[in-house]
Every structure is written in structure tokens, then in C-alpha cells.
Amino acid sequence: MTATQLPLTAVTTTPPERRRARTRRSLLLDVAEHSTAIALGVIILAPIVLITLTAFMSSGQTLTSNLWPQSWHLSNFHEVFVKAPFLTWLKNSVMYSVLSTVFMLVSSFPAAYALSRLQWRGRNFVLLAVITMMMLPPQVTVVPIYRMWAALNLTGTLWPLILPNLLGDAFSVFLLRQFLLTIPQEYSDAARVDGASELQIMWRVIIPLAKPAIAATSIFMFFFTWNDYFGPLLYTSDQSQNWTVAVGLASFRSLHHVQWNLVMAATVLVMLPVIVLFFFAQKAFVQGVTLTGVKG
């Protein structure tokens, strides 16, 4: 995982009351601001609406510049699965995302714990190393890593992308550490006085408190892997049965000689899970934010 994902800390924080504004604001300003926001909203939503409409069109209509479907073809979504092994690609994407997320948590949480809640020599050096790894463009080291996986006979599969998460993911370590720092030391101290070992403290005290952080980090990982294109392209391009939806979608038009309506139906299908996940996960963001307050 790279530095591309940044915490969405304030997605749902409520703005503090602004008494100052309330009294002095003119109605005119209010209207101006809302119309700007609505106009922007329309522009921003337009692409999503337009591709969704296209997904329902007949193939003939996509060659015209008509924006509204003349007839609604729900069957396009079914056709996507017939034309290409989309179901297999979906399964692969789910496997890549779920396993990566689980592996990342198992390895990164302990590291983040050690980096935030324990005092030891070299800690700051390790932290700098974490940040440097997080910032390293994946293309820099891609050749030796590819060769390594080729020697292990694992290219052509998604394992070269999943397995490294067992050995810690720099961005997740960093993010979890930032969250964990904000949990007051008193919780740990109290448990220590009771004679708990560090591992017991981590397991019984800190993990329950860090649930929102774990949720947020998992979501970032899930999003990153679901959206990843470079990794699956590099490792699985010659094995279409191991493609993820991102790779499959990118080559859908040229490889399966399909029209835009089916491409758009597939595009909608790939976008849908992340959008659904986002609406379900909003609460995790809220809790993560209120508990940790990692912001400016």
C-alpha cells in the first residue's frame, strides 16, 4: 500500500456551531453558497449518472449522442457476465481484498502497537523507515521483487500482492500508530499494575479501544486493493483466470469486442461495491475520528 490513501478523518464530523456567522449572514450569501454547491454537485454527479444511463442503453444507441435510454436494457448487466468471466474476476478481487486486509491487520497492528505504546531503543529509526517505505514508489523495486516471486513460481497469481501483507504494510502501520498514540497511557498503566503482560494489554485493553481505528485501516486497505491496477496487471496479465475486476474491466472492450453499453454496465458493477461499502462504513469513520482525532 502506498501513500495514496489518506485518512478521511472528517467525512462525517459535524461542524462546530458558528454563532458569529448565524447572526451576520445575509440571506443572499446563503443562497449564493447553496447554488454554488448545488451546481458543483451536479457537475460532480453528472459522469456517474451518465454512465449509469448508458449502462441501460441498447448497443445501437451508444453510437448516437442521445443521453437518455430509448429503452431500458437490464439484460446488459447479465450480458457482462456472459461475455467475460466477470464472476471469476469478482471472486479474485474479493479474495485479494479480504485476505490482504486480514493479513495486514495480523502483522501491522502489533508493529503499530510496539511503535506507539512501548518505549525502546531504535524506535524512532524504525518509524522513519516506516515512513520512507510508505513513500517509496512501487516502481522503484518492482524488478527484483518480480524476479523473487518468479523464482518462487508465484507470478501469474495474486499471491505476490497478498502475501507481503503478512509482513506488515507501511501505510497501515503508520496509520494505526497515529490512532494508537491518542489512547491515554493510563489504560495500559492500570492493567500493568494488575500484572498483565504487554501482550495481554494489547489484546484485552488496546484492541477493544482501537476498534474504530482497525475498521478505518481495514477500509483503506480494502479500497486500495479493490482499486489496484498496477499490481494485478504486473503479476496476472498472462493469466486471465486470476485477473481482478480492475484488470478485467480495463481490457474488457478490446479483448471481448463489446460496445460501450456493456463496458459501462461493467464499470457500474465495479464501482458499486466500494460505494455501498462506503455508505455502510460511514459509522466506522465517525467513531474512528471521534476517538482518535488524527487531524491537523
Binding site: A150, N153, T155, G156, S237, D238, Q239
Partner: peptide, 10 residues
């Protein structure tokens, strides 16, 4: 793709 796969022993 084929060249890449051969190089990787696959």
C-alpha cells in the same frame, strides 16, 4: 504476456 510468463517460468 507470453514472453513475460516464459521469463517467469510459467
Amino acid at each position: 504476456k507470453m514472453r513475460q510468463a516464459i521469463a517467469a517460468g510459467k
